[in-house]
Amino acid sequence: MEKVHLTRKEKSELWGEGLITVILLLMLNLAVVVLGKQIIAADPHLENSIWGIKQVMTFGQDNVHLWSWRNLVVSGMAIVDAIVVYWRLIRRYRQMQMRHVIAELHYIADGHLDHRIRFEVNSDLQKVVASINALVASTVNSMEEERRIEKSKDELITNVSHDIRTPLTSIIGYLGLIEDKQYRSEDELVKYTHTAYLKAKQMKVLVEDLFEYTKARQTTTPLNTVSFNMIAMLEQLAASFELEAEKKGITIQVTGEPNPLMMEADTEKLGRVFNNLLTNALKYGQNAQHIYLDAQKVGSEAVIKVSNDGEQIPNHSLSQLFDRFYRVEGSRSQETGGSGLGLAIAQSFVSLHGGYIYADSTPELTSFVIHLPLKLGTTLKRPDPGLQTKEEETIHG
């Protein structure tokens, strides 16, 4: 912060204000003196009773002589004059400060929204300046958020259009072949029909995930909260995925402490989160043999980890995993493509609960770590990314 730099004209105004004030005060003082002398001249006894008498105060054997009333009056007038001059100059200086602040406001209003008022002014005006800067910053943030949302919507429409167009083109193509009877055998007809059916199912998954994602992104989405045991929930999820995991030669292990680990949340939405994470682990955990589900109580939060010992996710992909439509392998094939919205949905549902989620991947384990408050109503603050590795080591050894 810096003081207001006065222009040459403003400095001249201050000098003029001070000079005029001094002249007026001198004239007033002279008028008071002349009037006092006229009063004394009219009654000579007043000179001895008011102006000339010295009062004496005795302390022990020492006499202390006080100023005469005349000296006191003169000194008092000088002090009052100095106060008046100071007040007038300060008043005019604050008016000049206000003019500079108003000029800065006009500059910002002209479209220079990155500009801030950096003046050091009087305390009352400083509060106004701080409020103005905060208001401008809030406005800029709102505008940037609006642009980001608009850009996000455009990207969403583009991605959805691409993902829907691809299977739709295949469906139309195969049904066109059937319509034109361009098949040579019954088996070929069944093949075309089956392919169109699979593509239609792929579109259905995308549309359902898109609907779920838009619903999860709404901050007004209600949470049907209940009290439940997180470890029991993980065990139920492991049981529901057990058959699919066995087909891939994968075992699912559940651990947790304490048991029961009681907390409040919307179990339906959290179930969708863990379903997405387990589905991803089974689908993308190349060469994985184990999936680990672990829940720990840490202070006033629950830390849940979904891990697999499959191939490591590249570091450059970790920060993009929760982006809509992002896929590590860049494939949109039926085998591994999916909708690309699963992790984005998981992140949104976790955020609705006031928690946060992040991914960590090493050659040994790929983990998705979720932090949730044990009781709803508080929002957990995500630590710096650099602290997450230490946190992981602390929680999971």
Score class of each variant (00 low, 15 high):
Asp81Ser: 14
Glu268Asn: 14
Ala103Tyr: 00
Lys305Glu: 02
Leu66Gly: 04
Gly249Asn: 07
Gly377Lys: 08
Arg91His: 09
Glu208Thr: 08
Glu188Tyr: 05
Ala82Thr: 09
Ala196Val: 01
Arg116Trp: 05
Asn63Ile: 03
Ser142Pro: 00
Gln182Glu: 14
Ile157Gly: 06
Ser170Cys: 06
Leu156His: 06
Asn315Trp: 05
Ile164Trp: 15
Gly76Ile: 04
Val190Asn: 13
Asp180Pro: 00
Glu392Tyr: 12
Ile252Tyr: 05
Leu105Asp: 00
Thr195His: 13
Glu246Asn: 11
Val254Gln: 03
Ser185Thr: 12
Val56Glu: 13
Thr394His: 13
Leu278Gln: 13
Asp294Thr: 07
Thr7Val: 04
Met233Trp: 01
Phe211Glu: 12
Thr139Lys: 14
Leu380Ser: 06
Gly310Asp: 06
Gln236Val: 05
Ile172Asp: 11
Tyr284Phe: 13
Gly397Arg: 04
Leu261Val: 01
Glu186Phe: 13
Pro314Lys: 02
Arg272Cys: 11
Ala78Leu: 08
Leu293Met: 05
Arg217Cys: 02
His112Tyr: 12
Gly271Glu: 01
Leu89Tyr: 06
Ser240Gly: 06
Ala216Tyr: 04
Ala295Val: 03
Gln286Met: 13
Ser361Tyr: 02
Glu120Pro: 04
Arg94Ile: 03
Gly18Ala: 14
Gln296Met: 03
Ile250Ala: 04
Thr221Met: 13
Thr220His: 11
Arg165Asp: 05
Lys153Cys: 03
Arg94Trp: 01
Phe241Trp: 15
Gly18Val: 07
Thr378Gly: 06
Trp15Lys: 15
Val350Lys: 05
Phe349Arg: 12
Ser161Gln: 09
Asp384Phe: 01
Thr394Gly: 05
Leu28Glu: 12
Val160Glu: 01
Ala239Glu: 14
Asp43Ser: 08
Val328Gln: 06
Leu243Ala: 15
Lys11Gln: 14
Ser331Pro: 00
Thr219Asn: 15
His106Ala: 15
Val160Cys: 03
Leu243Ser: 15
Gly36Cys: 12
Met57Asp: 06
Ser185Gly: 00
Arg382Met: 09
Leu352Gln: 15
Lys283Phe: 06
His106Glu: 15
Glu150Asp: 09
Phe211Met: 12
Ser367Gly: 08
Leu210Ile: 03
Lys191Asn: 10
Leu6Gln: 06
Ser185Ala: 07
His162Val: 08
Glu155Arg: 07
Gln253Trp: 01
Glu235Asn: 15
Lys204Trp: 11
Gln334Arg: 13
Lys127Phe: 10
Val254Gly: 00
Met96Ala: 02
Ser300Asn: 10
Ala130Val: 12
Ile304Trp: 02
Gln312Pro: 00
Thr21Glu: 13
Arg70Thr: 10
Glu208Gln: 11
Asn122Leu: 01
Lys305Ser: 05
Arg70Leu: 12
